[in-house]
Design a protein around this nucleic acid. Structure first.
Lengths: 197, 197
DNA sequence: TAGAAAAGAGCACGACCGGTCGCTTACGTC
DNA sequence: GACGTAAGCGACCGGTCGTGCTCTTTTCTA
């Protein structure tokens, strides 16, 4: 039992790594089995189907993302400090944690947004929780609090910059991407915190 | 010869449609052949390999995008008018032209950014041209002209909002996405045009 | 420590993959 | 209108896909 859990975790990690590189559907069970040093049929002792493994990958990626960007931030005193740190960690996540492949969440979003099914539903649910968490931070950024619509607009820009950062770095080879992203986000925080109610 | 060209165009269009849905690699030659009403071997009279077809898809998508967002705009008198219209057409492209699949350029970028090869190189070259075109518009947005760095930063935000718009609409189901995107972009234009040299 | 249960290997299956070959049909040109 | 060539078809190749099945080995537990 103990052993099985460890193996399962290794499978999910390798599957996530390959899925970030080639796409969730494109990674074959043989690929994962080879990467983890197992036979293809050995995989089926841990997952009943390929889809079950895909679901576990989505779960793992989102849990990893939350642990990376939220856990070390939850104890910071002000919303502004939390948002600034989250954005830094978010960019680290994109090019330090997933250097070879780029952010798996963006890859999964683009791949699954038109593919109905349990993997997509799980990703969507998890992303909506994340969105709510960040919108709440934006609401508390200013006194008096931001309206829901204002906070949503601010979140929209934050997420846009996070996505744009990966694209600029990976596809366009933009060396100044991090400066552009950080600058844009700081300016967003300034405007949002300063704006009149 | 005339007939062949027409068939080839239909193949590329169908392949692009399917690639936007499932990914460039995931679409099989049998899928495309069925969609266009051809036999699989018939496809090979128009493309020597699957990769040749993928290259044609990338070419077609980028040409289509340029025709959609730039051609009707080139004659507008001021950079601001051009940029505003481009951004509107860009969002139309994402959810009116590619309603069922989402923007194929974003899908291709995310899929190919870690897959070296001719399709990736072609996409990258084409996207860099587009980037240059838009940065030039930003440079001329203000008198005195924006510095290259300022224009790059403004382009970074514009592209981010275009990407964020698709994500918000398709993955998050955000009904206010268009308003958020338009608002953010208009504010960007205001700030950029107004900023002191 | 014995035995049950979990972990994993080996093999086979039907379906589909990209690609080739030889054949027929339809078209464009003189 | 004849004819060369382009367009397209069906059969087939070796290989990989996801997924069962049976059998062996390892691991945990009573």
């Amino acid at each position: 039992m103990r052993k099985g859990e460890a193996t399962r975790a290794r499978i999910v990690e390798e599957a996530a790594r390959l899925a970030a590189l080639r796409g969730l559907t494109a990674v074959s069970l043989a690929d994962v089995a080879d990467a983890v040093g197992l036979s293809k049929s050995g995989l089926f002792k841990h997952f009943d189907s390929k889809e079950a493994m895909q679901i576990a990958v989505v779960e793992h990626v989102m849990a990893h993302f939350t642990a990376h960007t939220w856990t070390p931030v939850a104890s910071l005193p002000t919303p502004r400090e939390r948002l600034e740190k989250i954005f830094e960690l978010w960019m680290d996540w994109e090019d330090l944690v997933w250097t070879e492949s780029g952010c798996p969440i963006i890859a999964l979003s683009v791949e699954l947004d038109d593919q109905p099914g349990p993997p997509r539903d799980l990703l969507q649910k998890s992303l909506r929780q994340w969105r709510r968490t960040l919108i709440n931070q934006f609401v508390d950024l200013r006194d008096p609090p931001l309206s829901e619509a204002e906070a949503q607009a601010a979140y929209f820009q934050m997420k846009s910059f996070a996505m744009g950062y990966t694209d600029a770095r990976r596809m366009m080879g933009d060396q100044d991407a991090r400066r552009s992203a950080t600058g844009a986000f700081e300016a967003l925080l300034d405007r949002t915190a300063r704006a009149a109610a």
